[in-house]
Design a protein around this nucleic acid. Structure first.
Lengths: 229, 229
DNA sequence: ATTACTACTAAACGAGTAC
DNA sequence: TGTACTCGTTTAGTAGTAA
C-alpha cells in the first residue's frame, strides 16, 4: 500500500514503450532517448543502466545504439499503472472517503437492532462478518465531515432489507464497508434509526470496537468508508 | 511530442486521485500524503503548493488538513496518461519501427511502376498523397535493421492491389506510412519487385526525396515506419 | 493538531572526456 | 559515430521550528 514506486524509472519505461520496446527489441540511442525525456545523454544512459539492473529492461550495447527490450517484469509495471489509472478514471465515485468523528455514548439501542435475526443474517451474508451486538457512535464535528457524510448517501451501498415482526417494522439499512482507525474492517450503517441527525455516524464491526481500540468518549476516530464500483 | 511532462507532479496527482480528489474535495493532511508518497511532510507540502501554482489542484488549508480537489486541468493530465497507456498496452504491435539504411541507386524501375495509373490511383486514395514517380532505395547494413524489416512483413499494412494490363501482371504491394529523416511523410513499400532482397528498402513520397533532403549515394537515412492499429 | 518557512544535506544532473 | 566514466554544479529532499 505505502510502497514507494520509482516513478522516474516508470516514466522512462513508458517512453521506451512509446518507442515499441514493450513489443520488440528496439534500437534506441541514449542521445535519442535523452531528447524524448528532456534530459542529457548521460542521464539517459544512467537510466537505462538502472532499469537494466532493476530487471525492467534487457539491454545490449552496440556501436549503433542500445538494443532495448522491456522485460515481462517491466511490462507488468506498466500494466499495473494502467489498470490503476483505468480504475480511477472509469469510476464515477472516489475509491474511498475518510471521515473523522468523536466517540460518544448513544442510547444503547444499537445492540437491540443489530441482534435482530433478520438483520443479522443479512449482515453475515452481505458484509461477510457477524457484527458485535452494538454500534460505535461517532459525532462529526467539522463541516467537511458532515458534507462528506451526506455525499455518501448518494453513492451505491450494500442494501440490507427491512422487515416486520409481531410488534413493528424495521427499516431498510444502507451499509458501506469501512476500515476503522486503519485497523479494523467493519461497516458504516446509515438510516438505521432516522431520528439520528446528519452529524452522527454508526459503525459496526465483528469485534467490540471500544475495547479493541481502547476507545473512550471524546476520542477521535478515523473511518475510511469504501465506495462500491 | 518532445515536451517534458513533470512526472513527479503527475505521480503526486495520481496519489491524490487514489484518495478520491479527482471526484470530490478530499481532506488530506500533508503528513498523510507524505506517508503515501514515501517522502517527508515538508516535501508533500511543497508538492501541494507546486501543484496548486500549476493549476492542477485547488487547495484550501484548514487546521484539520488541506482540502484538495484536482482541477479539470489536472484530471485532463491523468486522462492523457491513461489513454496513452491504454493505446500502448492494448495494441499488439509497437507504434512504430525506426529503420536506418544507406542510399543507393537502383535500376530506375521505380518510376515505371509507380506511374502505372492503376497503382497511382490506389496510392492517392489509400496513402493520401500522389507519389513522386520514383523510389528512394536504401540498403540495410545491420542485422538489427534486416530483422526489423522482416518483422514488419507480419504487421498489418495498407494493401495496394495488383492488376494485369495487355502485356503482364503487376503484383500486390504492401505499404506502411513512414516519416523519412523525421521530416517528410511518405511510405515504405514492400514486395513491389520480389527480386529485391531483404536488405533493401523502397521509399515513396509526394516529393523527390533525393533533392528535398539533399541525399547522395552512401548517405545514411532514418525511416520511422508506422504500424497500423 | 496542522502548514510551511529557513537552512542544511543528499541526490540527481550534466559537462568534459575516455573508449 | 556510439556509451558511460569522473567530478563539479544544481536541484530535490529533510530537520528543525515558527505560526
Amino acid at each position: 500500500m505505502t510502497e514507494k514506486p520509482d516513478y522516474r524509472h516508470l516514466f522512462v519505461l513508458l517512453k521506451l514503450a512509446e518507442m515499441g520496446a514493450h513489443r520488440r527489441t528496439a534500437r534506441i540511442s541514449t542521445e535519442y532517448l535523452a531528447g524524448k525525456l528532456g534530459t542529457s545523454q548521460q542521464t539517459a544512459s544512467r537510466y537505462l543502466i538502472e532499469l537494466d539492473n532493476k530487471g525492467w529492461i534487457k539491454r545490449t550495447v552496440t556501436p549503433e545504439g542500445c538494443l532495448i527490450k522491456i522485460t515481462e517484469a517491466g511490462v507488468k509495471e506498466l500494466q499495473k499503472l494502467h489498470s490503476n489509472l483505468r480504475f480511477l478514471m472509469e469510476s464515477a465515485y472516489p475509491p474511498s472517503i475518510t471521515l473523522e468523528g468523536t466517540v460518544f455514548t448513544g442510547l444503547g439501542e444499537g445492540a437491540y437492532y443489530i441482534s435482530k435475526e433478520k438483520y443479522q443474517k443479512q449482515f453475515i451474508e452481505k458484509l461477510g462478518f457477524d457484527p458485535y451486538p452494538g454500534t460505535l457512535n461517532l459525532r462529526l464535528t467539522t463541516d467537511y465531515d458532515v458534507k462528506a457524510r451526506s455525499e455518501l448517501e448518494a453513492y451505491p451501498a450494500i442494501e440490507v432489507e427491512g422487515f416486520r415482526d409481531e410488534d413493528r417494522t424495521f427499516g431498510h439499512v444502507k451499509c458501506y464497508p469501512a476500515t476503522i482507525e486503519n485497523k479494523v474492517k467493519g461497516a458504516l450503517i446509515l438510516a438505521l434509526r432516522t431520528h439520528y441527525d446528519v452529524s452522527v455516524l454508526e459503525i459496526i464491526a465483528p469485534v467490540f470496537l471500544r475495547k479493541h481500540l481502547k476507545l473512550r468518549d471524546g476520542h477521535k476516530v478515523k473511518v475510511e468508508v469504501l465506495t462500491l464500483p
